[in-house]
Computed example of a mutant assay.
Amino acid sequence: MIRVDDDTRAHIDAAISSSLARLAARTQTRGESAQALVAAIERAAAGGKRLRPALVVMSFDALGGDRAAVPALWQVAAAFELLHTAFVVHDDVIDRDTARRGVPNVGGEFRTRAERSGADRASSAIVGDAAAILAGDLLLHEVSRLIATADLGTRERATVLDILDEAVLVSAVGELADVENAAGSDVPDETILLGAAHDKTAVYSFRAPLQAGAALAGASAADQAALAAASAQLGLAFQLVDDLIGTFGTRAQAGRSPGADLREGKRTPLIAFARATQAWPEVSSALAVAHTGPIAVRRAQRELTASGARTRMVDLITDTLDEAHHQAAALPPGARELLDTIAVAIRKRIP
Rank of each mutant, 00 (worst) to 15 (best):
G184N: 06
G195T: 07
R155E: 15
G246A: 08
A15D: 04
A252E: 15
G48Y: 09
S18E: 12
F238L: 05
E323K: 07
I163A: 01
T311H: 10
S185W: 07
A114S: 05
L331A: 03
A225T: 15
A158E: 15
A46D: 14
A54K: 04
R251Y: 09
T250N: 07
A25Y: 00
L140P: 07
A119R: 13
S18Y: 00
E175S: 03
T85E: 03
T311Q: 11
K49G: 08
I342S: 04
V173F: 01
A335N: 07
L140G: 14
R121G: 04
L338C: 12
R302G: 00
R207N: 01
R310P: 01
R121K: 13
V89T: 15
L20E: 05
I342Y: 12
G174Q: 03
A177Q: 14
H326F: 01
D315E: 14
H11N: 04
T149I: 08
R3K: 09
D137P: 09
L37T: 13
D120G: 14
S33N: 07
D13Q: 09
P209R: 02
D165Y: 01
G213Y: 02
E282N: 14
T201W: 00
A274C: 11
V241D: 10
A208V: 03
T277Q: 08
V70A: 10
P53M: 10
P71K: 13
T85W: 06
A14V: 03
D261W: 10
G47S: 06
D162I: 03
I133V: 15
A130W: 02
L20V: 04
I2N: 05
V160Y: 01
G118A: 07
F238W: 06
W74M: 08
A230W: 03
A79G: 05
H141A: 15
T318N: 05
W74E: 08
S19R: 08
G293Q: 07
P209K: 02
F60Q: 03
Q224R: 15
A272C: 12
A343I: 14
P294K: 06
A131R: 11
E32D: 12
A217M: 02
I12E: 03
A232R: 03
E156W: 01
L176H: 08
L169H: 04
T320Q: 04
P281D: 14
F80A: 02
G64N: 08
G293E: 05
E264T: 13
A225N: 09
D319R: 13
S285Y: 11
A46F: 06
T311L: 06
V76L: 02
D7T: 13
R67P: 11
A217H: 01
R26K: 05
G213L: 08
A44E: 14
R349H: 05
I346Q: 09
A150Y: 11
L138F: 13
D6P: 04
R116T: 09
T27E: 11
V314C: 02
I126Y: 02
R22W: 01
V57C: 09
H291R: 15
A99N: 11
F80V: 05
A79P: 03
L287Y: 14
A330E: 09
F273N: 09
R43K: 13
A230R: 04
A296W: 00
E323N: 02
V143R: 01
E109C: 00
G293R: 07
R251E: 15
P258F: 10
P351Q: 06
E190V: 15
V57Q: 06
A131F: 08
A279M: 10
A286D: 14
P53S: 05
L134P: 02
